[in-house]
Amino acid sequence: MNELNKDAIRDLLYRMADDQLILGHRNSEWTGLGPILEEDIAFSSMAQDKLGQSLALYTLLHDLGDKDPDTLAFNREEKDFKCCHLVEYPIGGYEFSLMRHFLFDSSEALRFGMLAGSSFSPLAKIARKFRGELRYHTMHADTWIRQLGGANEESRAKIQSSLEFCFPLALGIFEPSDYEKTLAEQGVFPGESELQKEWLAHIEPLLAGSGLSMPDVSSCKPSYGGRKGRHTEHLKPLLDEMTEVYKIDPSAEW
């Protein structure tokens, strides 16, 4: 078998790890602020899962020869981050955070499902594990989207407008990389466009069943750039805050 392309794998791992780290951090901002206790716990718990998953992904990068996970998470420049724009936004109102959670986690669950069969076996192993964890995230998101979509006119209008705001950002999850062909040919990952197709087919009936209308994909401009290190104005302040303590003394033993 041909040697797998390490640069292609590294690019894929950074995208995923950075998404998990940043969204995990955003989700944790609901701790203590959730609208009801169960939701406070839910977002905190999902934050914990995402940080744990990012750690496992950074560990794979470390095994491939990159720096240690803490350095990768806390000591890189903004331009080196490969997260998509969707995860960068502040938590906003609850309807925004819920919609982001629904759109992102449904794609992530499908991504891990695809990666469970990856030819890069260390990634396949953790994908098989994380897909199970993601089941709880998607069940949570699906339930709330259905409830708020069907509750009353005010909740439906709010959740529909979040959907319209989030949709171009969510399409940015699937920004193609320079390695799409290589990853697919080597059986590492079928590719972002394949994933986007599966994702659209998956969310459309869920949204329709919740009384929501999916924006038209063809007339929607995806928010690209994040995967190439070009970020929204929201990422830098988040990184500054996230790394404030670490940067006082990066060599400190915890």
Binding site: I41, S44, M46, Q48, Y136
Partner: peptide, 13 residues
């Protein structure tokens, strides 16, 4: 089911 997320990651309420 009150919540699939509980006091630790292994527990639902």
């Amino acid at each position: 089911l009150q919540s699939p997320f509980g006091p630790t990651q292994c527990r639902a309420i």
